[in-house]
Design a protein around this nucleic acid. Sequence first.
DNA 1: CTCTCTTCCGAAAGCGCTTTCGGGCGCAAG
DNA 2: CTTGCGCCCGAAAGCGCTTTCGGAAGAGAG
Lengths: 346, 346
Amino acid sequence: MAQPPDRPSPPARPPVAKLSDVARLAGVSLATASKALNGRSQVRAETRARVIEAAERLAFHPNPLARGLPAGRTGTVGLLTGDLEGRFSIPILMGAEDAFGVGRVAVFLCDARGDALREQHHVQALLGRRVDGLIVVGSRTDPRPSLGPDLPVPVVYAYAPSLDPADLSIVPDSVGAGRLAVAHLLACGRSRVAHVSGDPGYAAARERADGAAAALADAGLPPVGEVLFGSWSEGWGRAAAGMLLDRHPALDAIVCGSDQIARGVVETARERGRRVPEDVAVLGFDNWEILTQGSRPPLTSVDLNLEQVGRTAAQALFAAIEGQPRSGVETVPSRLVIRESTAPLS
Amino acid sequence: MAQPPDRPSPPARPPVAKLSDVARLAGVSLATASKALNGRSQVRAETRARVIEAAERLAFHPNPLARGLPAGRTGTVGLLTGDLEGRFSIPILMGAEDAFGVGRVAVFLCDARGDALREQHHVQALLGRRVDGLIVVGSRTDPRPSLGPDLPVPVVYAYAPSLDPADLSIVPDSVGAGRLAVAHLLACGRSRVAHVSGDPGYAAARERADGAAAALADAGLPPVGEVLFGSWSEGWGRAAAGMLLDRHPALDAIVCGSDQIARGVVETARERGRRVPEDVAVLGFDNWEILTQGSRPPLTSVDLNLEQVGRTAAQALFAAIEGQPRSGVETVPSRLVIRESTAPLS
DNA sequence: CTCTCTTCCGAAAGCGCTTTCGGGCGCAAG
DNA sequence: CTTGCGCCCGAAAGCGCTTTCGGAAGAGAG
């Protein structure tokens, strides 16, 4: 539709082997060649071997377009992200690549940039390209509107769950991540644990806080003050740390809602003469290397296992394409990466 | 080839309109419908209108697979990246998306993870999918081996240039970026400018340093000490800043090879009682928001215009596909983003 | 030796679309 | 009223592959 009326023909390129070449070389018909290469059970082993050898000699690669035509399949999936920076999309993409297996399927990556209209447009473009399925990645863990139940292909939501429980969503376990953080601090012998988090409008902030609170409660320990919600920035981490250290000088650990916040907290603690981790243990979430490594000391952080989220989403999508759809919200556990900002009380 | 022997058929899905439906509804033949929709000049305007209306009523989207079969075109391009974190790929991807125009072409994204073997594999997979062209994105600006001259489709290298001058490469102007940085500091009235950079194994480090040195020389100013090469880390920035302030207490500006280094430098300067920017102006490269914003004060940084690199690469690829290939290395100018870590001497 | 089954292979029919090519029609010129 | 010429349109031939279906060849039973 969008082709120029009379475009010049592309420059001459070396021709590629096609199935008919393979068949001729192997001395069989097209049909037999196709069956042999696709592992259909109607060819003698010896014939199959001959065909395969011919294919290899010609460096034959089947044209997936032509292959998909009769089957209605294309061997491609669409990855629709709303995440500008690729902070979450990239690990998920890599996980998906792993799960599908290199070369088996190809991934179309589209960035909707958080714009619903653009998203709709991309969905149409992807469907037009006859993708076999769609993975939708959000930029935050808050539930998002479903693309709708009547798409012609299966959809899996990753990171941000769909509001529609009939859809399948794969998300990190934020509550569990919060529990994990506190459990580690308790294991380090800390007992006076405060919590500085980010924007309370984010489900991730609230759920991590819930998990942390629950773990403290399980241990019979009171939290140190309320959870301080603010923004996902170092500046907020610095400010909040100042307040905390003034009000609760006896605290011995601070859970931070993100690595950014943790950096600010660590910095302020050090400037106030508190040693990290000896006096105060600090940890963050996300395990964003650029932040955790640059910090003094390097930050312990809860890794949300985004690659695993991607891998699971890809596997689920694959299953759905094969006719085994699931639905509901499935969570992927988090993982603690211990660095120097936490350590046992000596 | 890699299909399971006898897979189950996918679940029933709503059928989509095909060209024959449109033709029937419009009361014309397939051929006419096709020509009408593709703007061929062999249909009466009135007939064309009728066909288009029928297509819209049926929400007809041509099947790009079938469309590409005769033409040998697929309307897809491959984006092959070696950049784990997507630090450079994502902006380039977005630029490419912009340049192609949403929906006109789709982008296959593959991550080779810096592995030549995996790269080769992905190239094969992409060629197998009959992409119309390839954009290869490197993870650093050092020249990289060419994919070879005899690929069946045009290739454009972005960020990392190809070693083969017959290829087309679109890269940021590292030398110009270095000049830009120093020019800004000079405009701020600084005259004793030191330079802390990253790993000297990186062309980006050397070229930025060259540009900076050239700009100083143009102004008739001597550099303050040698360029301190090290690594791309905050820790190195802190260490280097300590050395610099000891040896050259009179310096009034420090150019840093990256935002990470700049953060370390700023931190150490502040701890040593030097005010930034009043006593010492500091700037970095890359304009990585997460780093520039969290710093105290926020960092001035040279933005390499990666989106523009991507857009240019995409346009060049498009031209090559249309039969207008270019070759050689083309640079994209950088852009200064001024924040609080630099300011005129009062 | 004939008949029935298997096993293996090939002819042919699509999949949805584009494009070539030839023919019908209407018009102006002869 | 005939030619000739253009303008539109449709029939049909692919593009490269998969799949159905029927037939040929060989094996075993009667």
